[in-house]
Design a protein around this nucleic acid. Structure first.
Lengths: 343, 343
DNA sequence: ATTAGCACTCTGCACCAGTGAGTGCTATTT
DNA sequence: AAATAGCACTCACTGGTGCAGAGTGCTAAT
């Protein structure tokens, strides 16, 4: 979407967007003329503004108010943001310090990262953990809980753990459980969790195995264990959305919080963001997450040592401080990838 | 707090409380006289009301509005609620069905229970998982993740799992890990997690052990594993609080959501509720959770088969449908205890 | 003891300028 | 021809006024 805009029009548009981001109030021609050190009268600015309005880059809430950028304007602004404010050393250190202070486990790190993103941006931090199913199988263990229950514990090479309590119709002695886990550990060696699941299903049809009750039981139990229950998503600083004046309206707020509660749904929609590399910016209606209107999403992928990918970013109002948030998300994604790899 | 109230005064107070609960609007004398089938004029009711106001049971927002119950009035209302509406069979089945539909694991059940409490009450559902530390140790396992990391997995007899990634300064071969876990499993047999932690700390001071590098390393690692990171708390249906007219104000809303985000703090405060048996009712400022003003908390304990206790309940506005929520919480707590024990 | 009646109080709503920020157009300047 | 000064116009916002309605508190009558 390349507009045929004069340099001056651009500058003015940029000034309006930035003013609006800063104040959340419609900005008028005289404000632009003043702020903008350039020697231009408000009348001239007015002409340009009405032109920009015709192009669909600005709207006015009513005749005698200033003008507000449209989504299109934000998009243009972001695309032409040549001078992505470099992230300062101080801020970098801040991020590093905060991301490090958590425990060593992946979930802890990710949760803390989400917190950090939120508190540094003042918007909502979001982190989607690397999908467990595409992670590589490490080990499976069975632990007998009571007489008819077995706890299956599945561990991936990233150190992610998934456990599942499985009901069994007979009491399985610990010895058998041990043999079962040995067999399965052999079977799933080196596969991803989802491959392992496929292997299990295939093996269940294997005739030789069907006659071995121990093996078939092992497969049945493990099949349940590898059937993963949704990935994790860390949404931190939700309350910060309330600081934004555009969400002071109760109805809009309700919409957003409802959406935040539907983490499962969100996860699905976010998976789209994981396909491309680099920072992804979704403005307003471009946002895959259906969080009512007026929100933007900035994300970037990060990768774990064994190449599974996760997503991290920030959710805020369309009127978001793009110039600071974008480099922040970018840097954080790189940082997390690096932190995870330095073992 | 036994007030010296005539039967009539009581009836009127009850009518006002119920009216206010239903409408969230100040209730006037004529409304009471009407609703109240009793043959009383509004003037008489007015006299009684002004008496009740003197006693601190009612207030009026301004002279020409109706009156609003104070916390004291709710307390009185709840205490003298003789006819706790019996929970209907249909509703019972509803609860049972919903609590059952989750997986077999304790966390899944509890999360679903919290959801159920929320959706049936239309307030916020809250469930505090039984403390891991007071649960009985079942087994510890070590899994080697990379060269300098060991994943410690701790399982309790309730089937709760806690895992922790521990950094080691040397590479420990799998064989050693197995010996270590055998030693520890022996050591902690039959103890609660917190006792196990004490045992580990004691054992570390044991001279004989200090000279055995394998043992002392095992103790070091397991010490980290048993240092539990806060218990779990399931807060579901937070967005429902937005349906309450008294929270349509942005500032109050922010307060509440901030409090909801501080789950750790909440947990501490809630531990007070776990000491007494039966349904606990905290009205307004009695609430241990410091969620700004105007909220009430209704909780009850539930117990797991091995006698650890958890907490479950509902958070809502002071103007809460006590007569339906109280029996609901009561029933749900009993039900969960039963569901957990029927293995 | 209860109630009818009435004056009084206070909120909420509608209506009405007046104000000020901001626009769009036109005539003028450069 | 582009930029600007000037001016009429629009429209939200504010504060004041007046009225209706709900509700109270008091007093006098039942």
């Amino acid at each position: 979407m390349n507009f045929d805009l004069s340099a001056r029009s651009r500058q003015i548009l940029e000034a309006i967007v930035e003013d609006y981001i800063a104040t959340a109030e419609p900005v008028g021609s005289s404000a632009v003329a003043r702020r903008h050190a350039l020697t231009l009268s408000s009348a001239t600015v007015r002409n340009v503004m009405s032109h920009l309005e015709e192009m669909g880059l600005l709207t006015s809430p009513h005749t005698s108010a200033g003008r507000i950028p449209t989504e299109k304007a934000y998009r243009f602004y972001v695309d032409s943001l040549v001078g992505l404010r470099q992230i300062s050393r101080e801020e970098k250190n801040n991020i590093i310090r905060r991301c490090r202070q958590s425990g060593a486990g992946l979930p802890e790190i990710l949760k803390e990262t989400s917190r950090t993103l939120s508190s540094l941006s003042n918007y909502v931090g979001i982190v989607v953990a690397p999908s467990f199913t595409s992670d590589i199988f490490r080990q499976i263990e069975f632990i007998r809980i009571g007489t008819h229950r077995v706890l299956a514990i599945l561990v991936s090479t990233n150190g992610l753990v998934q456990n599942r309590l499985v009901e069994t119709n007979e009491d399985i002695p610990e010895n058998d459980l041990l043999r079962m886990s040995n067999y399965l550990n052999e079977l799933m060696q080196g596969l991803t969790i989802s491959q392992a699941r496929a292997r299990i299903l295939a093996e269940m049809k294997n005739e030789k195995v069907q006659y071995d009750s121990m093996m078939s039981r092992a497969l049945q139990i493990s099949e349940q264990a590898v059937t993963t229950g949704g990935d994790e998503i860390f949404l931190e600083g939700q309350a910060r959305i309330l600081d934004q004046p555009e969400f002071s309206d109760a109805a809009r707020m309700k919409d957003i919080f409802r959406a935040f509660e539907q983490k499962g749904q969100m996860l699905q929609l976010l998976s789209r963001c994981m396909n491309a590399d680099g920072v992804q910016i979704y403005i307003g209606s471009e946002t895959p997450v259906s969080l009512s209107a007026g929100v933007s999403l900035i994300t970037s992928r990060f990768i774990t040592p064994n190449k599974t990918v996760g997503l991290l970013g920030v959710i805020g109002p369309t009127r978001m401080g793009y110039s600071t948030v974008i480099p922040m998300v970018d840097y954080t994604a790189r940082l997390v990838s690096r932190l995870l790899s330095e073992t």
